[in-house]
Design a protein around this nucleic acid. Structure first.
Length: 478
RNA sequence: CGGGGUGUAGCGCAGUUGGUAGCGCGCUUGCUUUGGGAGCAAGAUGCCGGGUGUUCGAGUCACCUCACUCCGACCA
């Protein structure tokens, strides 16, 4: 569409330095700021408003599928964390410990939750005795702490906000279904609310969550060709139940171990939004979670009637969308650039000439198209345009993912793509851990997922040449 | 946690052989402007990331530490 002239010289161009572009957008769009604790960020009002909109939609989807919200404590006694072997081994290296209460040393140190499986298990043990107590479909919106070595706003912080669903069921089948259902909820949310296309699949054993029997994932591709794991859903089998000794009496009066799941998405989704839709002018927000969907910019606002008209339109729009009028004394050009940087999906310009003609100018953030709209048609046109921006963003992201997805038939081909073409690589795989490790060493790619939508790209493993069992997505990940 | 880079006004940066801190933007006030980051004038703003040394004297030199950042290893 309109040429993308770079007007915000404050933001580093994507092509020049993608990492710097990312942090520029985070700071300049006032999403988050650094604090005096490494890896802990302030989520500023504009960024938090995005999170609140994410929460609102997802929480509705959780409730609609029968889940209830709860809240667990933030501390886990060391002995409790240690109960499931794989789980503790997975998380021990990155937990923060509380060792003192005031000046007194604690009898047993407490870990600040990195995830809450153990707390839910401890609780389930108390409340589940009969098949009549099952299932329990719980979720919580909290923050967790993982003491990461290197940190980046939203993508990897030491404390982050998330939701963690934890469910417990009488049968493995029911738990499996739950795991898949929630993966679908996430995929649906990413595509239909965030306009981010995702690939649904299963993690390899190597990439599996600590303590899980199976980990399902949605993987998205960022602007720079790196993959971002955007949500996971785990099937635990009865492993946690056995480790925590959770049992229930079934209809035949026999003790049984129940089956569990957990699933989560985090504030990392905000990073995904930035890196999927953003451009050199800054943030581009999908309309459904944009804190401001339409910004009203009065033109020549000192002239008579302009401010009044702008306010009148704002009041009208407020009835059906999130709207803000900017009546500050900054120049119109300044406002244009400012709200583009902040990713507001639609800008409505209203000036003396427009008022004369009973019209306004609406500009789309995603493609900068300027559209003259009669003031009589705002109630129908604006929702249409918001929808059009959503679809435009989704299509653009999907198109880019297609362009950046490659097929490799042998190791040399794969290495060549990995070195020269950022993006996903589809390749056949024999299923062995050795080949997975080797590709990581030699091509510096990790397996992203075994997609549900399998394709037959050949009969042999891209790495060892032995018969292949699956097609995998490979890539460099955040 | 290993290797590099950077910390000076809100932001971006200068600061010479060590001598007590400057520029641009932004901010405040006034006037003129207003359909793509306006112009002029007058102002305000500093624990030079923190600590310890060397020195008559440290933004500057040495050592330690903290944070940010990039590249690896680890992870949502």
């Amino acid at each position: 569409m309109a040429e993308q002239k770079k007007m915000v010289d404050d933001i580093t161009a994507m092509d020049e330095d993608f990492a710097k572009w990312y942090t520029d957008v985070v700071k300049k769009a006032e999403l988050a700021d650094y604090t005096s604790v490494k890896g802990c960020m302030v989520i500023r009002p504009y960024g938090y408003a995005i999170w609140e909109n994410i929460q609102k939609t997802l929480d509705g989807m959780f409730k609609a599928t029968g889940h209830e919200n709860v809240c667990m404590p933030m501390f886990i006694p060391e002995s409790l964390l240690n109960k499931e072997k794989d789980h503790v081994e997975g998380f021990a290296p990155e937990v923060a410990w509380v060792t003192h209460g005031g000046e007194e040393k604690l009898e047993e140190r407490l870990c600040v939750r990195p995830t809450s499986e153990t707390l839910f298990c401890d609780h389930y043990k108390q409340i589940i005795h009969s098949y009549r107590d099952l299932p329990k479909l719980y979720n919580q919106w909290v923050s967790v702490v993982r003491w990461e070595k290197t940190t980046r706003p939203f993508l990897r912080t030491r404390e982050f906000l998330w939701q963690e669903g934890h469910t417990i069921h009488a049968t493995a089948e029911e738990a499996q279904q739950e795991t898949i259902q929630m993966l679908n909820v996430y995929a649906d949310f990413c595509e239909n609310t965030l306009a981010i296309p995702v690939i649904k699949g299963i993690k390899t054993e190597k990439e599996r969550f600590a303590g899980a029997v199976e980990t399902y994932t949605i993987e998205a591709l960022m602007h720079d060709g790196k993959a971002l794991q955007s949500g996971t859903s785990h099937f635990f089998g009865d492993g946690f139940a056995r480790a925590f000794d959770i049992q229930y009496m079934d209809k035949n009066n026999t003790l049984q171990y129940p089956f569990q799941t957990s699933w989560g998405v985090t504030t990392r989704l905000i990073g995904a939004i930035i890196m999927t839709h953003g451009d050199d002018n800054g943030l581009v927000l999908p309309p459904k979670i944009a804190p401001i969907q339409v910004v009203v910019v009065p033109i020549a606002q000192h002239k008579e009637g302009v401010l009044e008209k702008a306010q009148e339109l704002t009041d009208r729009l407020a009835k059906f969308c999130r709207v803000k009028a900017d009546v500050t004394e900054n120049s119109a050009g300044w406002k244009f650039a400012e709200y583009e940087m902040k990713g507001v999906p639609l800008r409505l310009e209203i000036g003396p000439k427009d008022i004369e003609n009973n019209q306004c100018v609406i500009v789309r953030r995603d493609n900068r198209e300027k559209i003259f709209v009669s003031l009589d048609e705002l109630e129908t046109r604006i929702p249409e345009l918001l929808e059009a921006v959503h679809n435009g963003l989704y299509e653009k992201a999907l198109e880019r993912r297609k362009e950046m997805t490659y097929v490799a038939h042998n190791l040399d081909e794969l290495k060549d793509i990995a070195d020269n073409k950022p993006g996903f690589i589809k390749a056949m795989w024999c299923g062995s851990r050795e080949c997975e490790d080797r590709l990581k060493d030699e091509a510096t790619v990790t397996s992203r997922c075994i997609p549900f939508e399998q394709e037959n790209l050949g009969d042999v493993c891209v790495c060892c040449g032995k018969p292949a069992t699956k097609m995998l997505y490979w890539g460099k990940a955040y």
